[in-house]
Design a protein around this nucleic acid. Structure first.
Lengths: 202, 202
DNA sequence: AAACTTTTTAATCAAATGATTAATTTTATC
DNA sequence: GATAAAATTAATCATTTGATTAAAAAGTTT
């Protein structure tokens, strides 16, 4: 069972796990350190014993989440060996897979970027060359008439936004809610096709 | 001057204005009623005098924002007189215009939908027929091979997501930051073209 | 097993926070 | 201009919340 594993985790790791869960679900401000302690099944004081403060613990989680979020994209953008089509396919496939398992990640990352742009800058030092990446160059080669930024925004938007707006979609159309996973699965093939079609637009 | 107008606002209206501003910038949990009182230039007790509680005031603002956010889209989706192409053009144009003036709106709405799906359901009662709208029917007519939900998601994603991810974009590529407004202006024409191209994808 | 270190706990603190109260000032009504 | 109603204020409450402390328990070393 999953329980067995949890029980054998160290207190430090139990707190981290709980912090990931609660911070992702409620965000920094709405999270109480007591929520985390309770979810972890540990004494509140242990949180400060291991992590000094709520903020430090949050930064740890944020660092992790930003890494897994951008780590999935950045190496692909810079890969000189793969074609543009390959890159688009890989990005769509990876993001849709990952977000199916981490539905709260997009909103968490968007909020983190908005609320702490400075820390965020520091974290992504060295990753700030999207515009001069191999990916951008390949986009430009394929379609010199549209700014590569536009198409970069598009692939990210098409892959990630559906997950961010899922709760809204479920209200606007309950049917979408029940078939959401299927729709996202379809998107793995559709996004590359759509991108290909958009690349032809002048 | 803009000041003149503000000074003549009633206390009630000053509080609402300040609440809009602070809630939009920081979200519900991170906002202190004292922040709002200070921004409004009124005594803290007046907030409760006019609005009973922080939560009631927030719901008022949320109601307003959701209305302006969805009110822009829903009538278009149901318009039997306009063509599919017209609808797409109208939606892109309106959203990009509106979000240029309200950059925090997307994240605010996404968070509101995620955090209070129940209240959100109540608010949008009667607007829950995206899938059976004229727009959805027109999409289906134009391309029976792709679920209309997919293309509905796409136009929303292409228009709204760039604003939600703007802080991230500015870090990933400072150049995008400076030319953001220009890029969004270009998108008014590009989004309809892209949608047209995507509609042909089987 | 004594001495020492690390981990864990219960109790508590100080500051922050949403809300209320009672008094005062301003505005409207007669 | 007196009287009542509405608006505003300063002071205060009760809780919540992040964090600390001092003591106890568990684990390690010699």
């Amino acid at each position: 069972m999953a329980k067995k594993k949890q029980e054998t985790l160290s207190s430090e790791e139990k707190i981290k796990e709980a912090a990931r869960k609660v911070f992702m679900e409620k965000g920094y401000a709405a999270t109480r350190t007591r929520d985390i302690a309770e979810a972890a099944g540990i004494n509140l004081a242990l949180l400060n014993y291991y992590f000094r403060s709520k903020e430090k613990l949050f930064e740890l989680v944020m660092q992790e989440k930003l890494s897994s979020f951008f780590g999935l994209m950045l190496p692909v953008l810079q890969d000189p060996a793969s074609s543009l089509s390959d890159k688009i396919h890989t990005i769509a496939d990876r993001y849709i897979n990952m977000l199916a398992d981490n539905p709260d990640l997009p909103l968490f990352v968007l909020n983190a970027m908005r609320n702490a742009p400075k820390k965020f800058v520091a974290m992504l030092k060295g990753a700030d060359h999207v515009l001069h990446s191999v990916f951008a160059r390949q986009l430009k080669e394929q379609n010199p008439d549209v700014a590569p930024e536009q198409l970069f925004i598009n692939i990210i938007a098409l892959c990630i936004f559906p997950f961010a707006m899922r709760p809204g979609l479920e209200v606007l159309s309950p049917e979408i809610g029940v078939q959401f996973n299927t729709l996202m699965e379809e998107r793995k093939k559709l996004v590359p096709k759509w991108m290909k079609a958009m690349l032809k637009v002048k």
